[in-house]
């Protein structure tokens, strides 16, 4: 029988490594949020092999299926998703570049391979076409990008991809969460090095990877919040019994566990479909699911801790802010929803 949810031995080993690393991220999360991610951590991340897990072998990657990356992303996001986004900048920005056919992509990709200091790629999904290309000049404003100072900016407008290096001016801003990843407003005014219209197939593959990536991050944040709230409510006593043993609370915990299980299954299915050729629909679905799950779980994560949940001595408020911030990236859930609505024809509605 082929239906199986088993991780292979290698996959389990990688997951366990990620879990270990994630614990160290968790311990220092608040510090990283305040002071930024130390340079040494980038080295660790690379050495542990997390950065290039699913990169093609030609790029110096390990060529593993994207599925493994989703498993790692979930684990690391449990520790600190904003530190993860900082460490994995190149990892995330690679998906659009891999989709390009343009001759200019090769030298850019070469820089990913080196991933030297100061190389800070960033991706912005411009669903509302607020960035304009006129007479060869790209201009517009991005209100928030989780980056300190992007050195390469990849703007996606539907199937159109712009890569720009010169003419991007960034100013720091303060976002709701993800502080360790950096945060800036970007003013664009310059000539893009690459303008390309992706084929439908390339677009679907790229978007599937990116949405599954973000969904895995949301899942990790939700799972962290659930685990913490579960532990807390199993310890604390109110009205003569453990908080978790009041049925009103127990049912919320049960619903959290269901939401997380459902989301993980949805992401895994997306990664599976991607490996079989087309994860666009399942990947977009997973993003919607992850967004719904993480907003429900993290808000209740705070609720179950009561007043403690609201203060930064406890981690749950951070996860709630993160779960609100993550879905605004990549065009938000609206982009995934609209893409799926356009896919309805493929489901037999035409």
């Amino acid at each position: 029988m082929a239906i199986s949810f088993a991780l292979s031995e290698d996959e389990t080993m990688i997951r366990n490594e990620a879990e270990k690393f994630s614990k160290s991220l968790y311990d220092d999360a608040r510090k990283f949020e305040k002071e930024g991610v130390p340079a040494s951590l980038y080295g660790n991340y690379k050495e542990l092999g997390f950065l290039n897990l699913d990169w093609p072998v030609e790029l110096g990657g390990q060529g593993l299926p994207f599925f493994v990356k989703t498993v790692v992303l979930e684990q690391l996001s449990r520790g600190c998703v904003s530190t993860l986004l900082s460490m994995d900048r190149a990892g995330f920005s690679l998906y659009p570049l891999l989709a390009l056919k343009h001759a200019g992509a090769a030298p850019l990709l070469a820089r990913f391979k080196q991933a030297a200091d100061g190389f800070e790629p960033a991706v912005f999904v411009d669903t509302d076409e607020q960035i304009k290309l006129e007479k060869g000049v790209l201009s517009g404003v991005i209100h928030y990008l989780p980056s300190h100072k992007p050195s390469l900016l990849i703007v996606l407008q539907g199937r159109r991809v712009f890569c720009i290096e010169d003419g991007i001016a960034s100013t720091p801003v303060l976002p709701c969460a993800l502080h360790a990843a950096g945060a800036c407003e970007v003013k664009i005014n310059g000539k893009p090095v690459i303008v390309e219209e992706l084929s439908e197939e390339s677009y679907r593959k790229m978007i599937a990877s990116m949405r599954l990536y973000m969904a895995s991050c949301m899942l990790g944040v939700a799972a962290a919040s659930y685990q913490y709230a579960l532990g807390y409510t199993k310890e604390r006593i109110t009205f003569g019994k453990k908080v978790a043993h009041h049925q009103a609370i127990a049912f919320i915990l049960a619903d959290m566990s269901i939401a997380i299980e459902a989301t993980r299954a949805s992401i895994w299915k997306g990664a599976y479909e991607l490996s079989k050729g087309d994860g666009f629909s399942a990947g977009s679905q997973a993003l919607l699911q992850a967004q719904e799950c993480s907003s429900f779980v993290t808000v209740y994560g705070v609720q179950l801790l009561g007043g403690h949940g609201y203060v930064s001595d406890y981690p749950v408020e951070k996860w709630m802010r993160e779960a609100r911030t993550l879905p605004t990236l990549l065009g938000g859930k609206d982009a995934a929803q609209l893409d799926l609505e356009r896919t309805i024809r493929d489901w037999g509605f035409a």
Binding site: A6, E261, A262, A265, E341, I344, W347
Partner: peptide, 28 residues
């Protein structure tokens, strides 16, 4: 309507996965 269709599909697809997972555990 399009929005509903997307939601309906998600609910059914995910339900199926949860059943499959529980069954796979039992079989193994």
């Amino acid at each position: 309507i399009k929005e509903h269709i997307v939601t309906i599909k998600r609910k059914i697809d995910i339900g199926r996965l949860l059943c499959w997972k529980a069954a796979w555990l039992a079989d193994t």
